[in-house]
Design a protein around this nucleic acid. Structure first.
Lengths: 337, 337
DNA sequence: CTGTTAGCGCGTTCAG
DNA sequence: CTGAACGCGCTAACAG
């Protein structure tokens, strides 16, 4: 292994001079700098991260934290996209990414370990729940983090990046209303997710704007997986007075509904209009193409990473938030009636 | 911050005794052990990872390495599933996961940095290419790694976990042949992927077994993304003598083909039978349900993680390999003719 | 502008 | 069975 001492010897200087050249924070003569750089190049020297971390009291790593059951079927391509966005930004920094996906019961232990062992300098949280444990824990410790999603409360005291989910659901619902739908259903995810609540709220306010009464029987929640999505979808379609259009919180939920339609001999886009969220590669490829809200998941990740790194480099005086735009992508699953 | 010294003071012992209690490798009196454990509990002590790494010369981290373009649309839920499997195993160890997804041109730099800075003790490689740079680099350095997929050569000198892709493609193709198909197409991924070559080879040997000549016009390659998959699919379907069934290397490719069928007014399962690979949540939900090969991607990740950790704990005398089973999941996209 | 010294927190000698 | 001393590789403080 080649250490800073080897470089020092090779360049005929002291280790601290090598350190100074590397950090660039001190005045070093051009000649010395050249000799040091040559030695580094020649020996292929890269500083030992642990040693640096130990003295700098910094890990130069950020954690991606996602509490969820591992064995559970996965919900869409959200994870792929958001992680890609995060990597895309982090790759241009000196930080590494530590990935932690743990079942909810290990959440506390896992966070504590990463923080106290100083493995990471900050976190990107991939989910926001009502009364979120991770958020509370990190806020309490004043440990740096950025939330992807909106906090359920204290919105001004957390750094976060999110879509305007209320607006997005409002837009989706209004889109259906303008197509003439009045009986509109809402298929959400877990009720304890802020995402579900926000989109539900947008859905309701669109109905309200057009003086359409909210029917509780038209509102259902799923576990974001295939099984429960399909069951709830079927349940909704078998209501005596079933909705003519449904806002689905996720593409998995949307496809479950489409599947249920097919089982019940209902024609998607005719008997039932469907709109989803989080455009993925499947939305474009499915037949019929799914009408969906593109939430630019990649950029949720990208900007969250940027926000976290900037916070680490120079702590904000105040908390930041960022809204990533969404847009409707018209497919073939919605029709005027 | 609470350090080993604080625990020592609290328990009335020396730091080295605390260290010994923690490592469990030395005889310590029950009484001392108890006092130390109490102090640890009381102060919530967790050892500093950098300090430990520095002296142990171990990072207690494994890298997940995946060279790919970040801005590119993502190919199916493979990444989700494999990462979940890896996390599932790693969560029960003392290791952390460092995630590195980099564009191919940064591959060398990224690997070198992670290794030389001692950020990771080993790698799990998520792709296997013909003449793979990462494999060559790591082998050359004798740096521990496990490949998910099969190496293109030196199969006995690399640790790897994979499906039997030749057999899987053979099974898929034979399944179609038994349904009476003779004109069978193959839509692969990138040609430089071992995965593509293996499945192509299995496809060919099934044809060969049944004395069906291989038609080069029936073999095409995609970039694993929506755009090129769709184009190649359309191209294949517009052949003068188009295939009546197609083996698709991935679900994204399969859905692209299904989409192309629809554009060309070909009925999937009637005019064209389709079989895919890597069962995902969408296979079950799509209409028609995709007939596909379940490759148990989660377990590819799980066992690769296990293999790597065991290798790190006690280096194998020899190289290991593991084959994860596959199975056909019958959907509605294949029919006898 | 540069070298010397000290110390980050921990595990491992080596004594006792 | 336990403590003291040392060093892992690096940066920062202090001299010069």
């Amino acid at each position: 292994m080649v250490t800073i001492k080897d470089i020092a010897r090779e360049a005929g200087v002291s280790p601290s001079t090598v350190s100074r050249v590397l950090s660039g924070k001190a005045k070093i003569s051009p000649e010395t700098t050249r000799r040091v750089m040559e030695a580094i190049e020649k020996l292929g020297y890269i500083p030992n991260a642990s040693a640096k971390s130990l003295v700098m009291k910094k890990a130069y790593s950020v954690g991606i934290f996602m509490p969820r059951k591992l064995e559970q079927a996965l919900t869409s391509t959200f994870f792929d996209q958001v992680v890609s966005g995060i990597c895309s930004y982090i790759n241009n920094t000196e930080y590494e990414i530590v990935l932690s996906i743990v079942p909810p019961e290990k959440e506390k232990e896992s966070l504590e370990r990463l923080i106290k062992s100083k493995k990471v300098d900050g976190f990107i949280l991939l989910t926001s729940r009502i009364n979120d444990y991770a958020i509370k824990y990190l806020r309490n410790l004043k440990f740096p983090f950025v939330l992807i999603g909106s906090p359920d409360k204290d919105k001004d005291y957390v750094n976060w990046v999110d879509n305007d989910n209320k607006k997005a659901a409002f837009d989706a619902t209004e889109y259906l209303i303008r197509l003439g739908h009045i009986q509109i259903g809402f298929l959400g995810g877990m009720e304890n997710l802020v995402l579900t609540q926000d989109r539900l709220s947008g859905y309701k306010s669109a109905l309200s704007k057009y003086k359409i009464p909210v029917e509780n029987q038209y509102i259902m929640f799923t576990e974001f997986d295939e099984q429960s999505s399909y069951e709830k979808a079927k349940q909704m379609l078998m209501l005596p007075d079933r909705p003519t259009a449904v806002v689905c919180i996720d593409e998995v939920v949307a496809y479950a509904l489409i599947r249920a339609c097919r089982e019940l001999d209902l024609k998607v886009g005719y008997d039932v209009s469907v709109i989803g969220f989080n455009e993925s590669i499947f939305s474009k490829l499915s037949s019929p193409r799914l009408t969906t809200i593109n939430t630019n998941v990649f950029y949720l990740g990208y900007y969250a990473a940027e926000m976290l790194i900037k916070e680490l480099e120079e702590p904000y005086k105040t908390y930041k938030r960022l809204i990533v735009q969404h847009s409707i992508v018209e497919g073939e699953t919605c029709r005027a009636i």
